[in-house]
Design a protein around this nucleic acid. Structure first.
Lengths: 112, 112
DNA sequence: TTTTATACCTAGAATTCTTATGCATAAGAA
DNA sequence: TTCTTATGCATAAGAATTCTAGGTATAAAA
């Protein structure tokens, strides 16, 4: 099913990871990047993305810088030092979660 | 981090998968099974589990059967026919989500 | 000239989970 | 024997996250 819903809690980790790799990105760019990387499977809604960016900024994990390109506004976000540290944690948690889920999904155990 | 939080949306899939494998299980058994299979990483809270079971039952995905063991009550849940079909869908969605996340996490793309 | 793409935003609703309780019985420890 | 832990169910209030549905504006394409 294309455009599958996000599992709640994953958006922040996605944002942080993209910024870790991409250096600095603006909101709309993030939505397009996720769409491209997942071949349209994951859809980041702007109604979730912008509040999430604002919150990460308020928490001191992101810095913002405004730019004007082609007479249009862009807000570039990048990781702060604290943000870089937190990104490592969030990624570790996500990978741990995925490992746990795979243990549940792979029925090596069968019955009990 | 032990006892990591669930990504919201995953609990129902966990329940359905366990019942698919385990045949019939009761609530407390599910919490213990998840703890065991994930070596304590995932912790299913009862405050989330019981409402989830009731909802799945109301949706016609689970059947319930009450039993008394050692003078204590147990509510055994098992998949209905509809529940078995839905389990296949939910598992496919979860696996798709995990694949998508791995595409985001594995920086084969680097910068842009 | 109308539509689509780019680019930002917010409010309200829905969903899902956590925390904090509560009740009751059985088993184990002190 | 009494206190604690384990077993087994349950709900209510709150927090957190996301979706839906709107809004504004400019540029590019149809």
């Amino acid at each position: 099913m294309a455009n599958s819903k996000l599992y709640k809690g994953s958006l922040n980790t996605i944002i942080l990871k993209l910024l870790e790799e991409g250096g600095k990105m603006y909101g709309y760019e993030i939505t397009q990047k996720v769409k491209a990387l997942t071949k349209g499977e994951l859809h980041i809604t702007e109604g979730a993305l912008y509040p999430a960016l604002h919150k990460l900024e308020a928490q001191g994990l992101l810095d913002v810088e405004v730019a004007k390109v082609d007479n249009r506004l862009r807000k570039y976000y990048k990781l702060t030092e604290q943000g870089k540290k937190e990104t490592v944690n969030r990624l570790a948690e996500l990978e741990e979660f995925i490992r746990s889920m795979e243990q549940l999904l792979n029925p090596k155990w069968r019955i009990s």
